[in-house]
Write a protein that binds this DNA or RNA. Structure first.
Length: 426
RNA sequence: GUGGGAAUAGCUCAACUGGCAGAGCACCGGACUGUGGCUCCGACGGUUGCGGGUUCGAUUCCCGUUUCCCACCCCA
């Protein structure tokens, strides 16, 4: 048997109803903030992710699905292509390619699959789904304003509340600009030098490759040491500090609760200033349901003009997972308003005509078959959750009035053809 | 990529120290020829994930492999 490949899965009804619920709630909320949809290709030049996400990140160095395309001629070498591991780089690429700065501030959202070659576990798949948004444009259009950061964060709080996800927590930090980070990294290396020998092997490695990540360490014995290390907050320059203060002030005034976490660092190279994560308990080790931040230098690093921006990506798989605990996807499924039961030879055609009429009135119609015994039609209609069953037999056709039975109450009446739509919608 | 656990009917799970592979639910049919849900009866359903080994005999023990799960690494 051929099975779905490692780390991929089929989404089936009734669960798909839950996915649609999440996606349409997101679209509704985004619309209220005037975000518009963008759709970018699911594969791009490998170079885009190497330059955008960062050559040294785990994502680029070992977690991408990359292959070489065929060249135009036999002798010619093809391009290196990659399934997108995230969507921000693609959006910024499109921003540059289509000169979207002509529109001032762009508020864009996307919903779609992403791909990472990681070891699968619960809430982590090789094809996973993200719902994300980016506010990007020239600084003169307000893209660099703390108002954007606060707007995006408040939008996310609204969406999570709307989805009924109780108990989310917004963790907030500022990772400063590139200069701040350089100074902080130096200080961190210096501070780590005398103590790193006492830390876990992971931290010893991180101290060399990416000192920032030492803050992610969960080894209890290392925590007292980590507590003594310098924090990025001490290295923010005047502009970054002011920016961060303004974001916090707006959030407080609009009533979005947050927790400051000066150990929060993000894995992708392009993040600057505001960095955030929404977490939710009861999701195991994968407790982050969304993450994001500002990426003021990303456009330039991809060869574009200065275009400050802020965005986020929601792990849709994890949102759906947390909803499955509280709500039943079953209840979100569309159910037929009426089940048509053709009874006897020639009745399929009669039922088809009726079904067509009813569907024109936006009535959800399910249709049986004339060879079914009536008992079977009733069973099928009941199992499908239909509200009514309509019998289409010789007698009914002759009288041009049909037996309509309410499957919940058991009440059955004969209804003239012309009255059916109104009667069914009652 | 590292460490650990698991895999038996469509689903949830049994099967004693290694001795005929089972139940509940679901599905299909019947009791009931144009009236469902409840009840009763019946039928269907399996190379025990896959491949090898030990054995008279393997779902059971051993080795390999695949997938899922848990935790790392990392991340949404």
């Amino acid at each position: 048997m051929i099975k779905a490949v490692r780390g991929t899965r089929d989404l089936l009804p009734p669960d798909t109803a839950l996915w649609n619920f999440v996606e349409s709630a997101a679209r509704d909320v985004f619309r209220a903030y005037n975000f518009q949809e963008i759709r970018t290709p699911i594969f791009e030049s490998t170079e885009l992710f190497a330059r955008g996400v960062g050559e040294e990140t785990d994502i680029v160095s070992k977690e991408m699905f990359t292959w070489e395309d065929r060249g135009r001629a036999e002798s010619e070498k093809g391009n290196s292509l990659t399934l997108r591991p995230e969507n921000t780089a693609g959006v910024v690429r499109a921003y540059i390619e289509h000169k979207l700065w002509d529109h001032g501030l762009n508020k864009l959202y996307y919903i779609g699959p992403q791909f990472r070659r990681e070891r699968p576990q619960k809430g982590r798949y090789r094809q996973f789904y993200q719902i994300g948004a980016e506010a990007i444009g020239p600084a003169s259009a307000g893209s660099e304003s703390p108002a954007r950061d606060a707007e995006v964060l408040e939008m996310l709080a609204t969406l999570l509340d709307r989805l009924g996800i109780a108990g989310w927590n917004l963790e907030l930090n500022s990772v400063g600009c590139l200069n701040d980070r350089a100074a902080f990294n130096d200080a961190l290396r210096k501070a780590l030098e005398p103590v790193v020998g006492k830390m876990c092997t992971d931290c010893q490695r991180r101290a060399v490759t990416n000192p920032l990540r030492v803050f992610d360490c969960k080894v209890p014995a290392d925590q007292p040491i980590i507590d003594t290390l310098p924090r990025i907050s001490q290295f923010l320059d005047e502009a970054c500090h002011t920016h961060f203060e303004a974001v916090k002030e707006i959030l407080t005034k609009v009533g979005v609760p947050f927790t400051l976490n000066d150990r929060l660092v993000r894995g992708l190279d392009y993040y600057t200033r505001t960095a955030f994560e929404f977490t939710h308990g009861a999701l195991g080790a994968q407790n982050a349901i969304l993450g994001g931040g500002r990426y003021d230098g990303l456009s330039e690093s991809l060869g574009g003009p200065a275009a400050p921006g802020i965005g986020f990506a929601i792990g849709e798989d994890r949102i759906v997972m947390s909803l499955q605990e509280s709500s039943t996807a079953e209840s979100m499924l569309t159910k037929p308003d009426v089940y048509l039961a053709p009874l006897g030879a020639g009745m399929n055609a009669q039922a088809a005509r009726l079904a067509r009429e009813l569907r024109r009135h936006d009535i959800v119609v399910d249709l049986g078959d004339e060879t079914f015994r009536l008992k079977k039609s009733f069973e099928t209609a009941t199992k499908a959750g239909a509200k009514y069953i309509l019998i289409v037999g010789e007698n009914e056709v002759k009288a041009d009035a049909f037996a309509l039975k309410n499957l919940a109450t058991g009440e059955q009446v004969s209804v003239p053809r012309a009255d059916l739509p109104n009667k069914i919608r009652e």
